[in-house]
Nucleic acid binder design. Structure first.
Lengths: 361, 361
DNA sequence: AGGCGTACAGCAAGCGCTTTCTTTCTGCTT
DNA sequence: AAGCAGAAAGAAAGCGCTTGCTGTACGCCT
């Protein structure tokens, strides 16, 4: 049915081995022969069978990238930049297809996709987004990754905590986001504006990023003598509401926070999407931003700068990270010393944060 | 290196044919044998080699989806819903991997990816987003699709104009978005509010959706006696600024529109992302929304409802469309009669549109 | 002029699986 | 008791490609 190498060979009057060599260009072929073969290829519209090639050459044209949610620009930005690197001139030798695997944050889906990618003998796998903080799951993932790595699949963690494979030398190649530092600077910014009652809406409890950002927030508070042990931090836990990484979680959590009536003058959201929900809830309750309550997010997604008011947030250079992950997984650049590189974050102060109306300092 | 069928067979004391049959479950195997094989599979952590299987069985575990920009939630939503269908219990037989191909709107990239997918003998291909309106490109795409279709690849167009393959029976399976009707109703809404000077920021000139939406807009104007031939529509073309599908295009186009000083009381944006830029530009010039100028978008992306003011827009049920495209490409549902189904759009009136301050009616 | 290195091109052996065809056995029928 | 259907398992032929090895010319050396 489809045109095969043999068809091309017959047409060009050579053996299929020669055609293969012309196509792959890694073996001397006489100019005239090469030309004849190329003409035959063009005339027959020959397209190589990727699976047969992969089987014979023990290679793969697939790179997998695991994301929690493709519809979320956070992952979209990473994936898009990554693909631009991985698929560079995808027609050229070396250009790979990107398999985007939407785990929906589910550990089972994550494992399933890793198996599927192993089945396809993927050339590389990039894991993005915070890991699920569960020893059992972490162990299962590690086991899968170890097998993948053993079979030559390149593995890159992007925005995940470093991971060390058993019996391996050093941790996996990792691009770690500085969630802790970013969150700390963000809360310090609010403190320096004069806020003392700062609400915090967390991400999903089980994700590692949630913990890291919250820890940064707490570190800032402690730096100002507002740690859990102090008088000022007596009801610190009350100021924290657990949520998730979507807009509705932010909305609900904010209503809950307001219900607690703690006199918050600022709310830090786990990320920009959550901040969207926080703002919606505040407006729903007739509160102005930043007049009544300041709001801050995390990630600096594209829509955040254009929000009204523009959202104060912490910028993660997602596109750079994605591009770098792409280059790493393709082996085009060497991993950072020690395997782990930290992607720095930057505080973006915008209109959604201002000094509190009534200085409680 | 990797565990093969033969290894499993040896361990279970059967032939590799039997192991294959146990794995695929499409042939009678005695219970005891089956059990023995399954134990061997588990003990050896056997994972089938997808390429070998694909080669032998002439099948594929890949479904490609072409998008203009993964980072754009418009495509993200489609892709995510699609993948949920396609990969259902991806471990189960029939579950496919989704290859997301980011064309960046480039016709060349589109063709390249189609070739790559053909090379991988993809089981299905979904093309999303407006097509590039160019006879040459359209012809090239059609040729590629014809070959894919001939080799058994299922093809689905989602949000693209229908396409008929040469010498084929009827058009390709298509989910067409009602861009025209949506745009018409949107502009009618503005007209009914009393707006008469309505600016329009288009999408990229070469995309089919751009034309369809603009045509809907014009149809509404004509319905109100404001067609290009009429007095009221004398400078209709001046009110239209050509842009693109990103935020910056909306920003720049709006500045251009304001520079023309046509007294616009409302601006329709090609989509919600563009509307973001439109709003930013208006604010930049000290204009309030909707006090000074009403703004409307298209698509109803998640952030639009939470914008301030909430954006009036036209909702496209992207997730439904994506899910349906997924089911179609998997052959789980039968194509609509005639091959083409229209996805209806819905006007979402929100806070960003209001009657003009000074009725010019 | 004989021999040898070199540059091409072909042969053929797989890569790891699926699947057709065949064989082997068991259990029935007549 | 002979024969046969049917179930279960094996043998082996590919799927379309890559690649190590083996030819076969040619041009060059001494």
């Amino acid at each position: 049915m489809a045109v095969t190498l043999a068809d091309v060979a017959a047409r060009a009057g050579v053996s299929s081995a020669t055609v293969s060599r012309v196509l792959n260009g890694n073996y001397p072929v006489a100019g005239s022969t090469r030309e004849r073969v190329q003409r035959a290829v063009a005339e027959l519209d020959y397209v190589v069978n990727g699976q047969a090639r992969a089987l014979a050459a023990a290679t793969s044209d697939l790179v997998g990238v695991l994301v929690n949610d493709v519809a979320d620009p956070f992952f979209g930005l990473i994936a898009s930049a990554l693909q631009a690197e991985v698929g560079v001139g995808a027609a050229e030798p070396g250009g790979k297809l990107t398999v985007v695997c939407n785990t929906g944050g589910s550990p089972e889906a994550e494992l399933t996709y890793l198996t599927l990618l192993e089945r396809q003998r993927a050339a590389g796998v990039v894991l993005t987004g915070g890991a699920v903080d569960s020893p059992a799951h972490s162990e299962a993932v590690t086991a899968r990754l170890a097998r993948l790595a053993a079979s030559g699949t390149r593995i890159v963690l992007c925005g995940r905590p470093p991971l060390t494979l058993p019996g391996d030398s050093g941790p996996l190649t990792t691009l770690a986001f500085d969630n802790h530092g970013g969150a700390r600077r963000l809360t310090e910014h609010l403190l320096s504006l004069g806020h003392r009652r700062i609400g915090y809406v967390t991400g999903p409890a089980e994700r590692s990023t949630t913990g890291h950002r919250l820890a940064g927030h707490r570190a800032a508070l402690e730096g100002h003598g507002m740690g859990p042990g102090t008088e000022a931090g007596a009801d610190a836990d009350q100021l924290i509401v657990h949520g998730g990484y979507d807009r509705d979680a932010g909305f609900d959590a904010t209503l809950e926070l307001l219900r607690r009536d703690l006199g918050v003058t600022a709310i830090v959201a786990a990320n920009d999407t959550v901040a969207l929900g926080v703002c919606a809830a505040l407006r729903d309750r007739g509160l102005s931003i930043p007049g009544d309550v300041s709001v801050a997010g995390f990630d600096d997604l594209p829509f955040s700068a254009d929000a009204s008011p523009a959202l104060t947030t912490v910028r993660i250079p997602l596109q750079e990270a994605g591009a770098r992950a792409g280059r790493l997984v393709m082996g085009r650049i060497t991993p950072p010393p020690g395997g782990v590189a930290t992607i720095t974050t930057e505080l973006m102060v915008r209109g959604s944060t201002a000094p509190p109306a009534t200085g409680r300092s």
